[in-house]
Structure formats: structure tokens, C-alpha cells
């Protein structure tokens, strides 16, 4: 009889425990959702670049989803040099007509500082931890694990729309040139 009673209490204890755990999980889920980015933040727009606005060898910093985006129109001389020295870097460039662009999120892939463009050495230096990127923003000195990420883009005539995924971007993703951001 005593055992029987204990069994009944155990059962009630488990029911209470299970019920409490369920409520706890529900509360945790609500808390997690409260910390999620708001829909208005998620829907934050697209940035359209007009290629005629950019001069060769001049770095322009645009803004996309609150992040800086480097836009650098490469000169024919740079392209020739790359063809000879680093042909694999050419895959990182975005071609619109006969203009070649380096477009990437200007946040170091190490911990997110903004690397500075150094025109005299034709590279990017991140002052936080000393990472260096070449002219196409491919990494050349650690700690960054990879080159600067290329944002999703779609080429539309003489315009580039950041935030939309065009076939050229999908190909870059498939080839492992960049990571999704």
C-alpha cells in the first residue's frame, strides 16, 4: 500500500515536472523570439550602384544593411598585372560591360573591423589585428581566414543591385569565391 502511494506521488511529481518543463520551454522560446531581429530590420532594403559614378583606382565606401561596402573600379593596368601574377584573383571581380569592379563588404573577416585602403601599396590593412588583403580584397596575411565577403548582387544594365541574387553571384557562391552574407 505504501509503495502504491509512493508510485502515485512519483507520477504526480513527474506530471508536475513535465508540465513545468513545457511551460519553461515555451517561455524560453518567447524570450528567444524577443531577441530576434525585428521584421523591419530584416526587410532593410537594397542598395543600387550606378557604375558610371565610379572612377578607376578610387575606393568608394557605400552602405548596405548598415554595413560598409567597398566599391573599387579596377584600372586596365591592374587587370593586366593580375592576369600575369594572380589569375585566380580575377574570379573575385564583378564585370559590368568592360568595367571590372571589386565590390565587397568592408568588414574584416576576422572580427569585423573596417580595413583601410592603402593606395601606395595597393592593398587593404586591418589595423585591429594586422590582417592584409590585396587589391581584389583576397587575404594575404593572417589572422583573417578568407578574403572580404562579396555581398549578394544582381547586374542590371549599368546598375548593380546589392541584396538581390543574380546569376553571376550564384556562380561565385557555387565556385566558393565568397560566403553568403
Amino acid at each position: 500500500m505504501a509503495n502504491n502511494k509512493k508510485g502515485r506521488r512519483d507520477f504526480m511529481g513527474m506530471v508536475l515536472g513535465g508540465y513545468t518543463a513545457l511551460g519553461g520551454l515555451g517561455a524560453l522560446y518567447a524570450m528567444k523570439r524577443t531577441w530576434d531581429p525585428l521584421p523591419s530590420v530584416k526587410a532593410a532594403g537594397f542598395t543600387t550602384l550606378n557604375i558610371d559614378d565610379y572612377k578607376e583606382n578610387e575606393l568608394v565606401v557605400e552602405k548596405w544593411r548598415g554595413k560598409p561596402v567597398f566599391v573599387l573600379r579596377q584600372s586596365p593596368a591592374t587587370i593586366e598585372k593580375l592576369k600575369k601574377e594572380k589569375p585566380e584573383d580575377l574570379k573575385r571581380l564583378i564585370k559590368v560591360g568592360d568595367a571590372h569592379f571589386t565590390i565587397c563588404v568592408g568588414l574584416c573577416t576576422h572580427l569585423g573591423c573596417i580595413p583601410a585602403f592603402r593606395p601606395e601599396t595597393q592593398d587593404f590593412l586591418c589595423a585591429c589585428h594586422g590582417g592584409v588583403y590585396d587589391i581584389t580584397a583576397e587575404v594575404t596575411k593572417a589572422p583573417p581566414p578568407r578574403g572580404l565577403d562579396i555581398p549578394p548582387f544582381r547586374i542590371d544594365g549599368k546598375k548593380i543591385v546589392l541584396g538581390e541574387k543574380g546569376p553571376e553571384y550564384e556562380k561565385m557562391l557555387a565556385d566558393g569565391i565568397t560566403m553568403p552574407v
Binding site: 528567444k32 531581429p37 525585428l38 548598415g66 554595413k67 552574407v181
Partner: peptide, 16 residues
């Protein structure tokens, strides 16, 4: 990256 955005409540540090 999703965890980082969750912690920030945004793509970059902002109001949230």
C-alpha cells in the same frame, strides 16, 4: 552569423 545577428538584433550594432 545568425547567432551574432540574434545577439545584436540587427546585422550590425544598432538600436536593438
Amino acid at each position: 552569423d545568425a547567432l551574432v545577428e540574434w545577439i545584436r538584433g540587427d546585422y550590425v550594432p544598432g538600436q536593438a
